[in-house]
């Protein structure tokens, strides 16, 4: 096929990507010029280009703040755990569900676990605060088992686990869809051949299923790595309170309080830029790692 004809055949694909590209341009490329704010003492009256330039002052100041360290640690722990568990749990779930023979039951389960994904954190936070409240379901069950009641969301030692756990609970059904889709792409003759060769179901999973969807798993992991510093603003913001700042305050909530509540635009931009730069490196590393270890190229 000649290159020109090739392009022509793909025109409709380009048209389909256009809205996404436009969105990317206006909401991700255009705002890039705002990065300048991180290096100046931004004054809205003077505007982006005339505000006084201060070099790396904002960065120095940001890291001199006592909270910076704890916020970064919290972010990495929460985001890191979410990335790992949001791959492992949906994957395991998809593999298990794939083995279920009763179709009705299978679809029912799939739908049920899929639903929480569509609820916003604003609503879920209220629900969770109630479920984990002093006379909520969780404490009632603990009570039946003869245990002391705990006010879960006021205890800093439980906060991270709750945030991570509830996020995985909310998303695993949705994330599993991707793996289920990948599973259908595996050639069924492979399973037939393996069965004839005397492969147990476990061996089939190990030697056919997992290699068959390895590409998808790696893709999800690599895409996830870009979120290494995204611990989930919506969720944490709606669940946290000052009693759990020590384990629950993350970069995004911190930036929110500095930038939008306290009107420190430059400082907030600095923190945001720091986050983006780290994320960028994470993506570069994961891209390289995917190619190196799994011989997989994303683009």
């Amino acid at each position: 096929m000649k290159p020109k004809r090739h392009l022509k055949l793909q025109t409709h694909y380009f048209i389909m990507t256009l809205p996404g590209l436009l969105w990317l341009f206006f909401f991700s490329i255009v705002p890039l010029r705002g990065i300048v704010m991180a290096f100046e003492n931004y004054n809205p009256g003077l505007g982006l280009w005339k505000s006084p330039f201060v070099g790396l002052e904002n960065f120095k100041y940001l890291f001199s703040l006592g909270d910076a360290k704890r916020v970064i640690i919290n972010t990495i722990i929460i985001a890191g755990s979410k990335i790992i568990l949001n791959i492992l749990v949906p994957l395991t779930f998809a593999l298990l569900l794939n083995e279920v023979r009763n179709l009705k039951y299978k679809k029912l389960v799939q739908t049920a676990v899929y639903l929480p994904h569509f609820l916003s954190w604003v609503i879920l936070a209220s629900v969770l605060l109630n479920v984990f409240s002093l006379d909520g379901i969780v404490n009632q069950i603990m009570h039946l088992m003869g245990k002391e009641s705990v006010i879960w969301f006021s205890e800093s030692k439980y906060f991270r686990q709750l945030v991570i756990g509830t996020d995985v609970w909310k998303e695993f059904g949705f994330n599993a869809v991707i793996y289920l889709a990948a599973l259908t792409g595996i050639d069924p003759t492979l399973y037939e051949a393996a069965a004839i060769d005397g492969c147990s179901r476990w061996k089939q999973i190990l030697h056919i299923t997992l290699p068959g969807i390895a590409g998808t798993i790696i893709l999800m992991a690599v895409l996830g790595l870009g979120n290494a510093l995204n611990a989930g603003f919506d969720q944490v913001f709606n669940l946290y309170n000052p009693m759990v700042y020590s384990t629950g305050d993350i970069l995004d909530t911190w930036v929110y309080r500095i930038g939008l509540v306290n009107l420190q635009f430059s400082l907030a931009t600095t923190a945001g830029l720091f986050k983006s730069v780290i994320s960028f490196f994470m993506i570069v590393i994961s891209y390289w790692a995917a190619y190196k270890f799994a011989d997989y190229k994303i683009f």
């Binding site: 909270d67 006021s154 000052p242 009693m243 700042y245 020590s246 309080r257 509540v261 009107l263 400082l267």
Partner: peptide, 23 residues
């Protein structure tokens, strides 16, 4: 205060609630 207050306020809220609730 413009640069430093957010940080101090966070610490204060945290201290107040944690002491009163016995944490």
């Amino acid at each position: 205060m413009e640069a430093k207050w957010a940080n101090l306020e966070t610490a204060e809220k945290e201290m107040a609630l944690r002491i009163i609730t016995g944490k």
